[in-house]
Each structure stands twice: as C-alpha cells, then as structure tokens.
Design a protein around this nucleic acid. Structure first.
Lengths: 241, 241
DNA sequence: GCATATTTGTCCGTATGTATA
DNA sequence: CTATACATACGGACAAATATG
C-alpha cells in the first residue's frame, strides 16, 4: 500500500513533465481519453509506475484533471493491449509478468518479426537509415552506461524493423508486444547484461538487410530472439527464486 | 441515413435473440462494458450491422439498456481491435475495408498462422479433434448450401489452428484478425465461390498435421493464404468497379 | 466472522463543441 | 449561415463489491 502511494506521488510530480496540464494545450485531434492513455502508457513504459501499482480512479482523475468517466475510457484502451490489467470491482493495475507471460510474449513477438522479414522483398536502402540511427544511439548510450536508454533504443530498433512491412496492423501489434516486453525488462534489475549482447547483433542485422540477404537476416533474428528469451527467463528465475 | 436507420431497427429487433435484456441475466463475472462489446462484436461479425453503419450513442444506449458512459467504454474496447472505427466528434461506425486493408490483414494473418505452425513441435492427435469437427461442419454446411455457415466454420477452423500454440496472446491477435477478415468477407456477395475451394484444403491441412508433417502443412498454409487473399482481392475489384 | 469504510460500477443530467443538412 | 443533431466531457449520485479494522 505504502509503496503504491509513493509511486503515485512520484507520478503526480512527473505529470507536468510528461503531459497533461490545463495550461498546456494538446493537439485538438486527440480525444482526452486517448491522451490519457498515451500519458499513462509512457509513464508505464518509462518505469514511472512499477508493476503491481494500482491506479485509483478518483485520485488519478484529480491528478490528470479529467473526470472519472474519461479516465475509465482511457483505462479500457490501455487494458486492451496489456499495459494495464483490469480486476473487476478492484481496479486497474500495472501488470506483473511471470514466466508464462514471457514465453507467450516471445512466441508472438517472433511470429511478428519473422513474419515481417519473410514478407519482405528487396529492402530500399534509404529505409534502413532509421535502423542505423537506432543502432548508433544504442551504442552511444552503452558507451555512457545508460543501460535503460539502451533498452529504449533497442525497442525503437525493433519497432522500425516491423515498420519495414508497411503494414499498419503489424505495426500496431508490434507496438503492443514491444511495450509489454519493455515492461518485462523493467521489472528486472540487470539492464546491462540484458541489453549489451544485442547491440552488436542489431548492427549485424542491419548489415544483412543492407546486403539484401533477407533470409539470412530472418534466420539470425530467430536465433537472436531465442537467446533473448532464454536470457530473460534465466534472469527472472535468478532474481525471483 | 435511411439505410442506417433501417439497420439499427433490425439490430434492435435482434437484440433479444443475441443477448442483452434486463430479464436475461448475464454471467456476473463480466462487466457491462465487456458484455456490450461482446454483443456488438457478434452482431457485426454476423453481418447484422453492415459496414458503414453508424452506432449513435443515445439510441443504441436505449436499445441495449445501458448508459451512454458504459456504452462508450464498450466502444473503446471494440474500436481497438478494428471492429469499430471512431471518427472524432462524428461517432463510431462499422468499418468499410478497402483493398489496402485486405492486404494488410493478410500480412498479419499469415505471420500469425505461419508463426503458430513454425513454433509447433509434434502435434498431439487428441488436439486435432476440434479441427476435424470444424472441417466436418464446414462440409456439412456446404452440402446444405449454407455458405455463410461455411464461412463461420472456416473461421473456427483457423481460430482452433492458432490455439494449438497454447499462447493466449497469439489467440487474442488471431481472434482480432479473423474477426476483421470475416468483416471483409461479409461485404462481398459471393460466399460460395469464396469459401468452397478451401473446404478440401482445410481437410488436407488436418491430414498433414495428423501425419506429423508440420513443415509441409506450413508450406501448404502459406499457399492457401496467398490464394485466399488473391481471390478476395479479385472479388472485391469485380464487385466494386 | 462481522461491521464499517473505501473503491469501483453504473447511471443520469447538463454544458460545450463539432460536423453536417 | 444558421440550425440541428450528435459527440465530448464533466460532476454528482447511488448501488454493489471489496478491503479494512
């Protein structure tokens, strides 16, 4: 209980930095519920709200300056892609992922990412620029020891990889699964050992794509994801005996 | 406008058959918003609400006997997996899929279904029973000329195929993509030519799985989906010049 | 195990904003 | 252009379920 209170307090102090405030107008194209969902999503992914945190309607509504009805609409949006869990008559919580969730997540993630590469024809080199940027910013963050930032760059890399498919639905599912994966990483305490090995492998992937060796890249990615999954599982077992 | 009115009238008359009524209690584990989403989802998939239909809050709320707040929560749930589209300040509508949507849908669908087969080890024969049942009920419906029912059996077949993965997330995405695919089929007027060729191919797939020739089944499924996609595109172009 | 307090679930009324006839 | 219908968003109310002592 106390822990949750503290987390919510921290959220409240962060809110101005992240988003909603009456004096900071938001783009008029976005509904309030969607904006709420975006703010909370970012807070969760950034680790502002650790797994297990409850999000009480009344209090959070006051913090975000939205009515309970609107807040609940935002909750519905987020709970649908696994970033919140809804316990009927108890409220919404930041989910705590277990081993089964992790395995499940990697089954889906592998299907999506491999599916993208298998559906890809030739890759336009100009579209690899984003991937190269992500690799570079990952390397840069690693040099500075900012391991959480390395994780963010890595997620961007995979999101951009998926967007090579030009398929909005693949990108949507990809966004969901990557957000949940990020959640799994966040609950673990060893960002360095988790992220470091994959910086080089990301660069290698870009190389294969640039050389138009897409099937080779697909095979490499499959091993990559298998290794990442196993390492994540091992770390989870280590930290939670 | 007039057409939409008529459709809604039909929905209202169907509502009792489908679900909500004050005197018909629903399972107490399900929130009203989720129940609303389930009812609407079924109505859309069954073709009760043709693509393009608007769902006005006030009127539909009266029909379903729920408040507008609750209805809106249900809308948020559905719009998130593509069964409703939300036009800001205009309302929610049953989506009309175009060619791009169709192609997009099949990219995702292929990734999911092929991903399932590729992640599969040996298949427990007892788990193929559901698939066999779906094939049989498809054949039966075809004999009777109930082509829409053939379509339903086909969707069940693919849902059960995906559930072989034992991955809740794969099954969730599968449900979404299959529901949208069903929507695409519904807007076309040739259920027979669309469904007939695939009855036999479903049976063949079960045969390969039963014989533990999973990679062969994966290859067959890939061709299957490619053909289905092309046929659907051709029909769409034919019916909408 | 019970009584109480808190939180969620659901509904209603209303004021405002927006798109369309 | 105005008129109208509808969605957006808010706040209050009460019932129902859960958590707390």
């Amino acid at each position: 209980m106390t822990a949750e209170r503290i987390d919510l307090d921290r959220l409240e102090s962060e809110l101005g930095r992240i988003g909603i405030r009456p004096d900071i107008p938001r783009p008029p194209r976005v509904s309030t519920a969607e904006h709420v969902a975006a703010v909370l999503s970012q807070a969760i992914i950034e680790g502002e709200l650790p797994p297990g945190t409850q999000l009480p309607e009344e209090r959070l509504g006051r913090s975000l300056q939205v009515s309970r009805n609107t807040l609940r609409e935002g909750f519905r949006l987020l709970s649908h892609d696994g970033l919140l869990v809804h316990h009927r008559h108890r409220g919404v919580f930041v989910p705590e992922l277990d081993e089964a969730d992790l395995t499940d997540l990697y089954v889906l993630r592998t299907a999506i990412e491999i599916g993208v590469l298998r559906s890809l024809g030739r890759v336009d080199p100009s579209r690899l620029r984003q991937l190269e940027d992500d690799v570079r910013s990952g390397e840069e963050a690693a040099r500075r020891g900012r391991w959480r930032q390395v994780g963010t760059a890595n997620m961007d890399f995979h999101q951009h990889l998926i967007s090579l498919s030009d398929s909005p639905r693949m990108m949507r599912v990809g966004r969901q699964v990557l957000a949940e994966t990020r959640l799994a990483f966040l609950s673990l305490a060893q960002p360095r050992t988790l992220h470091e090995p994959f910086i080089g492998r990301n660069r290698a992937l870009v190389g294969m794509l640039a050389a138009d060796r897409v099937p080779e890249a697909a095979a490499a990615l499959e091993g990559y994801l298998r290794d990442s999954h196993e390492q994540l599982l091992a770390t989870l077992r280590e930290e939670r005996p």
